[in-house]
């Protein structure tokens, strides 16, 4: 049995290798492009004889990558933090106190998940202008939090229903003035696995967000990494080597995190997509 299996196994391994190489092609091209000096128009399939880091230095300054990376970090950090706090707080009563009002509110959150926030672009843009929050990092945070809260609540509520023992809240007397502190000391730590998933989902989505950012963060000092890159691309369509270098620096933080925390990433993102 073992022996007859070996040949097809080897064949399958070769197929897997070919698939892996095919999936690496765009990244390979990205690297060769980024390391070629300006004006080096040799084939994208070969690395230059001399690796040039000039593109990286130049792109970093010209595309204002430092500032935009910092903006992205700030927006992602505060959005994810608020999502975790507001999401877990909201999910608790919705999962455990099934009064009529709470059931209704829960259904509302689930229903909102079906509306793609972008379909309300025109009125949302108007709202942001009206409240005077155009070009602020705060509005990016609020928009992202509102967009992903329903998903966070859905995931938290499911987890609370299935894993947190009811006796806990009876013992801890979850009512009265100190409910908040009991929630954060007793219940919240038990939510760690789902908190990790939500953290990863929201960080990936918000870090990579372009749809909200392009509308609300047009000013130079608030641009996120995707917005900075799209305007940099617009200015340098004839100088792709520079754009490639900028793209590498833009994706590097997330790629490094992914390679370090691979299992958590895949698990977290999968649990987020299983919302259907």
């Amino acid at each position: 049995m073992e022996k007859t299996n070996r040949k097809p196994k080897l064949f399958l391994s070769v197929i897997a290798l070919i698939i892996a190489l095919y999936h690496l092609v765009p990244f390979y091209i990205l690297l060769t492009t980024a390391f070629k000096a300006k004006g080096d128009f040799s084939s994208k399939w070969i690395f230059p004889k001399q690796f040039s880091f000039d593109n990286f230095r130049e792109a970093w300054e010209m595309a204002n990558l430092g500032q935009s990376l910092w903006n992205t970090v700030i927006i992602t950090f505060f959005s994810a933090g608020l999502l975790i706090i507001l999401g877990s707080l909201a999910a608790y009563p919705l999962a455990r106190r099934t009064t009529k009002a709470n059931k209704l509110v829960y259904v509302f959150f689930i229903a909102v998940m079906v509306i793609p926030p972008l379909t309300a672009l025109v009125p949302l843009y108007q709202l942001v202008v009206d409240i005077g929050m155009m070009n602020t990092r705060t509005i990016a945070v609020l928009n992202n939090v509102a967009a992903y809260l329903p998903l966070a609540i859905f995931l938290y509520a499911g987890f609370i229903r299935s894993t947190i023992p009811k006796e806990l809240e009876e013992a801890a007397k979850m009512d009265g003035a100190n409910t908040l502190s009991i929630f954060f000391r007793v219940v919240f730590p038990l939510l760690k696995p789902v908190t990790a998933s939500i953290l990863i989902i929201s960080c990936v989505y918000i870090w990579n967000d372009y749809q909200f950012a392009i509308f609300f963060l047009q000013a130079e000092e608030v641009k996120t990494i995707t917005v900075a890159l799209s305007s940099f691309f617009g200015q340098n369509t004839s100088n792709l080597n520079l754009v490639a270098a900028a793209a590498i620096m833009a994706v590097a933080p997330m790629v490094i995190l992914f390679l370090l925390l691979q299992k958590h990433f895949i698990q977290g993102l999968a649990s987020g997509s299983v919302k259907g």
Partner: peptide, 28 residues
């Protein structure tokens, strides 16, 4: 008391979603 809805715990989340998603959607 265990039946009480603890509505204040979801109020901030509800307010954000209503203000930034439902209201714009209806306004649209």
């Amino acid at each position: 008391s265990l039946q009480s809805s603890l509505w204040w715990m979801y109020l901030p989340a509800l307010a954000l979603v209503v203000f930034f998603i439902l209201y714009p959607f209806l306004n649209g």
